[in-house]
Nucleic acid binder design. Structure first.
Lengths: 207, 207, 207, 207
DNA sequence: CATGAATGAGTCTTCATTCAT
DNA sequence: GATGAATGAAGACTCATTCAT
């Protein structure tokens, strides 16, 4: 709705920017930062190279803008899912489902996301690296707090450190996403979040 | 003992190769595939660039050799740990411990390992990518079989698909490794494997 | 007075043109032809780039217009000084003084002037180069004629070719200007023109 | 003689470097720093662009090396000429003659020399600019000292500040060089140094 | 008529790879 | 057999110029 109020020129600019970022996202995610040339991006976005540089001062800047934007969108969605009303269990279900939805809708983002959060972060400037780390850390804290509250309310047994549980849940969902990415047919991301949650909830051993 | 049988010439060659790979490993893991030049590797290994090319036909080939070798070593060690005599629980403990040991001894390998298994696999030729995937898949199967056998023997409750459990355990240990890598002081990789295993064993909810 | 007769529209145009040239002069003289961009000039002059191109067909054209205009102004002033009534000596004094005044009032012009008359004339199109050369040559002839007349009238001794003397006087004043430009405090351009003239007048050796 | 002792490899390297510098000199002097591309230089010198970069880390470095080397050679020759045994007059003659010889043998250097000493010094890094200025200033001092000594020994009349006289002589010789450069036929650089010196020696006015 | 967004040729520079010694 | 000098394709980025609005 706010967009409607923007002057036409501005709207066009924004649309162009989005096209550039979309082209960049697809290429970066498919081939990696260093294997994509600015010309390639410009061509895919159907702009002249100079135009690309009007929007982003350099390749790094473009990459950072892309990653930061995607991360923001992504964490936004997940945080919202977590903070939905409901008890702890429901929130975890929301998280798992939201994660599936977000990534299914942004498949090409997955590889980039993991490249930046788990992989080799030597591509790009130091400053933004720490920004990502921090944002991720914040989010993990939020996730941990669910486990913590759950334990306080005696809904969860104290089987492990809440932060560890958060990291665990995050990594399990990631693993499922990866399975799906590699072999979508054989390993669909579970429709039912409990497929994942049960692993944490039930316990392999009899108590 | 096998080495003793090799003619001196051969032994020397092998040693040279190892030095090259060691230099490459350190550089690749620190700076990423594209940010390391062949000259850099040659210099670090104290060989002429031409000599490097005598051993590896091109950069890609060198990288593939490095990764494959490391993966082999790595999976070798983990498979051995898993197949140690003992019940299923003990085997899982072995796995967790071995994984910690292997990576602690090859810190620089971690980033590369994850870059290749979880992250951006766009660096290098397609062929070898699938080779890695396959080897990893095989290993995951082995891990899954432990859970499966455990279930059959009624040692484990059937809370989830064994393959999913394998993937889960793998991803949790990876997550712990990452925590340790980022902040070794704050997040040491657990001495006691049960710190990790309990998450799978105990279950958050009362049964 | 002539300006008053021009229609308003024309007067405005001329004023705009002057602003553009002024901006260009400052930038070119500070950074050199190739290190100044048309955008820079447009911005400094507070016009759109397109408008700049309405006035000057291209960068070269702008540069030529600027140089030619400045040279015209400059030679105009010097010629006037030379042709002032008075004997030969007085005229030379006028020349030296006028040169100091003109350049003091157009400091940023000096570098450009010398770049074009003595330095590297590779910046711009051939045609205009010769135009400058010719104008300069003409002026030198005028200067030479003073020495020549002076000799005919027995006011000057015939110590050298009049044209050489003209070139000499020109180059000495230039040298003083350069000294001043580099270290204004230590090497002021002489108030008294005889500081310079005496070098020509007196002779190092006893006769 | 020393060169004969250099290992062949070294000699070749030096020769290559000289070829590169020669190509660069010719191009820079004809077209100016910014109007010459590294590819152009490489091509003229008949080397691959990469080879050029093995010898000079970047364009600026190449330019600086070129200028500094030429200046060194140039000032070397002039200083030697000045310090030759003989009285002050003879030394000035030597200077004028040497200057003519040096520049006649390095015609393409003249434009560059003046571009850097008198013209627009915005091309290249600050540091080396001051180095040139200093070297020039030193030389001017040496030249001035001849006039000073001459005055002390009563050989020269004290018609002006010695430093001013040095600057004057320098600028007159430059002017003659320029005349020659523009129209070699019409304005040859004087064979007889007294053509120039007389201007300083004799004095236009009767004493 | 002014504007400034868009263009793309051209520049510097890097680095994988080859091959003569 | 080892060496490392030489190569040149490819990539990031700039800026003069055009033209639709």
């Amino acid at each position: 709705m706010e967009e409607k109020k923007l002057p036409r020129r501005e709207r066009e600019k924004l649309a162009q920017r989005q096209e550039m970022l979309a082209a960049a996202l697809e290429l970066f995610s498919k081939k990696g930062y260093r294997n994509v040339s600015m010309h390639e991006i410009a061509e895919k976005a159907e702009f002249a190279i100079g135009t690309l540089y009007k929007f982003f001062t350099n390749k790094e800047d473009l990459y950072k803008a892309l990653i930061l934007e995607q991360f923001y969108k992504f964490h936004q969605a997940l945080t919202k899912a977590i903070e939905e009303p409901g008890d702890e269990i429901q929130r975890l279900r929301n998280y798992i489902q939201a994660k599936g939805e977000v990534f299914r809708a942004n498949v090409s983002m997955i590889r980039l996301y993991f490249a930046e959060t788990h992989g080799a972060r030597y591509n790009v400037m130091a400053g933004f690296d720490s920004e990502i780390r921090e944002r991720r850390s914040e989010f993990m804290q939020t996730l941990a707090s669910i486990f913590e509250t759950g334990m306080k309310r005696k809904r969860f047994r104290k089987i492990a450190d809440p932060y560890h549980l958060a990291v665990t849940l995050d990594s399990i969902t990631n693993a499922f996403l990866f399975l799906w990415l590699d072999e979508p047919e054989r390993h669909p991301y579970p429709e039912d979040p409990d497929t994942i949650l049960n692993i944490l909830f039930k316990g392999l051993l009899d108590q």
